[in-house]
């Protein structure tokens, strides 16, 4: 009896989580003229693959923007994070704990509270509307979380290893290069997945700081779906395109994805 209820609940919930996905795929495969509200749940005959071609043509430049943005910002911020984490975990100085706390605070602010000065600043240094301006912004506001993940990871590495390398005459960068880096692959994977997903999915900075030619795909999708008299097959195909990279990351690297997710919340 209990088992039956359990499975009934699980199946019901799986329906709740998967039904939207089913509807998205279904709608994306419909000819625009055949999309009517009464027949939304009917599977199209034959499937209209054209939607994806049209959506891909419309979204390709934005998709490329997103790829450039997410990969370069992720690489940079992982590098910055690992150096910061290394300093804070293995070379603490007086006041470094306080500085770490001050850095962490940046993770919690609502970005609305810095958006107007940021917008003005980007305009004044001529990076408004530029994709690399957006990369810079993501790297900077990513500093708190990546520093946190790397510092926590590096504090698990025994100090004796660092000490031994120092006695052997290795300096700051020597130790980093030969002792720390070879051990930090898991942390890099967690940070890379986390940052890639975050930056790919981000919207507020993207919509505020870009012009049409430098828009990432989230902005383009929101604008397409928000327009009047939309043919719904296009936004749905676009949604699939926009979701695909992060979804693939989740499916194939789910374990690390989860670790990033839990990094900030279940310590202590």
């Amino acid at each position: 009896m209990g088992r039956v209820l359990l499975y009934a609940f699980l199946l019901l919930m799986a329906g709740f989580f998967l039904l939207p996905v089913y509807l998205v795929i279904l709608t994306a495969l419909k000819e625009p003229a055949k999309i009517t509200l009464e027949t939304v749940w009917q599977w199209p005959h034959p499937p209209y693959w054209e939607s994806f071609r049209t959506a891909w043509e419309a979204f390709r430049p934005k998709f490329q923007n997103s790829v450039v943005l997410a990969t370069s910002a992720t690489l940079l911020s992982a590098l910055v994070g690992s150096l910061n984490g290394y300093v804070l975990a293995k070379w603490p100085f007086r006041g470094s704990g306080l500085l770490f706390a001050l850095i962490l605070f940046g993770m919690f602010i609502p970005y609305q509270s810095i958006l107007i000065p940021l917008f003005q600043f980007m305009k004044s240094i001529g990076l408004y509307g530029n994709l690399f301006g957006l990369v810079l912004v993501h790297v900077i506001y990513g500093i708190p979380i990546v520093t946190l993940i790397f510092r926590n990871y590096y504090s698990e590495i025994p100090d004796e290893l660092v000490e031994a390398a120092r006695i052997d005459g290795a300096g700051f960068f020597g130790i980093f290069r030969h002792v720390i880096l070879p051990l930090s692959v898991p942390a890099f994977v967690v940070v890379a997945i986390w940052q890639f997903t975050q930056i790919w999915n981000e919207f507020l900075f993207a919509v505020t700081l870009t012009r049409p030619e430098s828009q990432p795909i989230t902005v383009a999708l929101a604008q397409l779906a928000g327009g009047e008299a939309v043919k719904w097959n296009l936004p749905m195909a676009g949604a699939i395109l926009a979701a695909l990279p992060t979804l693939l990351v989740y499916i194939f690297l789910g374990r690390y994805f989860l670790r990033g997710l839990l990094a900030g919340s279940v310590k202590g």
Binding site: F17, L18, P20, V24, T218, A242
Partner: peptide
């Protein structure tokens, strides 16, 4: 299945649910 929406952007979720919640459809 229960966790995958976490990988999506709020914009994608919003677009999907906007269509799910059409008054005469979805």
């Amino acid at each position: 299945v229960f966790l995958f929406p976490m990988a999506l952007s709020f914009v994608v979720t919003g677009t999907i649910w906007r269509w799910m919640l059409q008054p005469q459809g979805g």
